[in-house]
Design a protein around this nucleic acid. Structure first.
Length: 423
RNA sequence: GGAGAGAUGCCUGAGUGGCCGAAAGGAACAGUUUGCUAAACUGUCGUACUGGCAACGGUACCGAGGGUUCGAAUCCCUCUCUCUCCGCCA
């Protein structure tokens, strides 16, 4: 959520930045500025009535204590009129504030100056490509066929017990999952992230804090009986750990990571491009999250991108880094890098990580601030990234590393899998 | 699931209708002093909105939301959460 004061003082710039994100309702900006104006006016009025009511009440109290009952009664008669006024003004103020909040929530984050213009994925900017795309032998298979051939991932079985998009990992397939999770967590720890194990259900306040609610509730599984949401990403609990928190400036940056399963309804997705592991309702992911000083957050974004790339390099996967254009970026992000790995048998790039700086967009909702020795508490910047999401990593490992004898496990993973090949 | 207790500032904790934005102690910060790794003394010490160039004001907030009252941390209602005991249980 953007800050009203910022919008008021930087109207032109806000409009210009929103245009980069292809925001369709720029008129909201002026509406918000007007509502804010109304809000302050109404509050001033209300405050002055309340001030008068307070001093009158005090007066009555003093008179009562002095035993001047008649005088007190006289003043009492006068003070009862304040009630209607404060009620009316209070209701008006609440109505304005509610509307202001509703409209503020409709504004997406402002893209950073370096974010490329554009509205479609094709307009994302390729920052770099790394690695060599493997040349596969003649009868090379896509990963869903490899999964069946080696009996390591069972989509049918998942269908039976849960539904499409909930695969069952079997034998070496399961071990590969576990190996990847442990490898990612160990690497994150080496990079200075503290491992956390958060709940995988969250309440409404948490969903609001990171921006999933109110507008994206259709994307999350909801447990109606207890009004809890299954997390779509560990970003939600890991970032919400700092909701309503003021951290010490010297503690920044705070670096946390965590492994969780992630749940996404993915309503409306179907077809060949979501086959196999390409898109699932439940998947595993290790997430990295940082709470940063505003002056350092863009440097940290680059570091996080470099870190994620180091994982892909270690896994020997060919990848590219995209700087997302304004229109393709998420609602809440100020700048996002996507990492995509090459899936040789499908001959396509698959997104395996998304690293974003949210600046103060989330922290404003979360009321996440930092405070130095001097001065007031300021909103911190939040960043997060996948490091990494498993299914598409598995898909590309299977496809890229397939040989006529079996699937080769990358060297760094062998200590974790305890096997070198899936035959 | 049943019964009970509770929620106050960074922490402990007092406050049961006006003198309470809130005692006291601790912590923290600044200073003084003695000197030695600590103590004593003094001062400062909540947040948000808002008016003002500023000095300095106004308003709201004692878990959340309503209500009673001229006036609520304090009384009433609803909700949320925490703790204790019982039950169930990985």
């Amino acid at each position: 959520m953007l800050q009203v004061n910022y919008i008021r003082e930087n109207r032109e710039q806000v409009l210009e930045r929103l245009a980069v994100k292809n925001f369709k309702q720029p008129e909201l900006v002026d509406q918000i500025i007007q509502l804010d104006e109304d809000r302050r006016q109404t509050q001033n009025l209300l405050d002055s009535v309340l001030a008068e009511a307070n001093s009158t009440a005090k007066q009555i109290g003093d008179l009562m204590r002095q035993g001047k009952k008649d005088e007190a009664e006289a003043v009492k008669a006068k003070s009862s009129s304040f009630k209607d006024q404060t009620k009316t003004l209070g209701d008006k103020l609440t109505a304005i504030e509610t509307l202001l909040q509703v409209e503020l929530i409709l504004l997406p984050n402002l893209p950073h100056q370096t974010v490329p213009k554009g509205s479609t994925p094709e307009e994302n900017e390729v920052v770099l490509e790394h690695g060599i795309m493997p040349k596969l032998f003649a009868n090379a298979l896509p990963h869903w066929e490899l999964a069946a051939k080696y009996d390591i991932i069972d989509f049918e079985l998942g269908n039976k017990i849960a539904g499409a998009g909930f695969p069952v990992y079997k034998g070496k397939g399961a071990k590969l999952q576990r190996a990847l999770i442990n490898f990612f967590l160990d690497e994150a720890e080496k990079a200075g992230y503290r491992e956390m194990q958060p709940p995988i259900v969250v309440n409404e306040a948490s969903g609001f804090g990171t921006g999933q609610l109110p507008d994206k509730e259709g994307q999350m599984y909801h447990i109606g009986m207890d009004n809890l949401y299954l997390i779509p990403t560990a970003e939600v609990p890991l970032t919400n750990l700092y909701r309503d928190v003021v951290v010490k400036e010297e503690e920044l940056p705070i670096k946390n990571c965590g492994y969780t399963p992630c749940f996404r309804r993915e309503a409306g997705s179907y077809g060949a491009h979501v086959r196999g592991l390409n898109r699932l309702h439940q998947f595993d992911k290790v997430e990295i999250v940082q709470i940063a000083h505003p002056e350092k957050s863009y440097k940290i974004l680059e570091e996080m991108s470099t870190y994620v790339q180091s994982l892909l390099q270690a896994l020997e996967l060919p990848y590219r880094v995209l700087s997302l254009c304004g229109g393709d970026m998420s609602f809440t992000s100020a700048k996002t890098y996507d990492m995509e790995v090459w899936c040789a048998a499908q001959a396509r790039w698959l997104e395996v990580s998304s690293v974003s700086n949210f600046e103060t967009y989330q922290s404003n909702r979360l009321k996440l601030r930092y405070k130095g020795k001097e001065g007031k508490a300021q909103l911190a910047h939040t960043l997060n990234g996948s490091a990494l999401a498993l299914p598409r990593i598995v898909a590309s490992l299977l496809e890229n590393n397939q040989t006529e004898k079996g699937i080769r496990i990358p060297k760094v993973l062998v200590p974790y899998t305890k096997f070198e090949c899936i035959e």
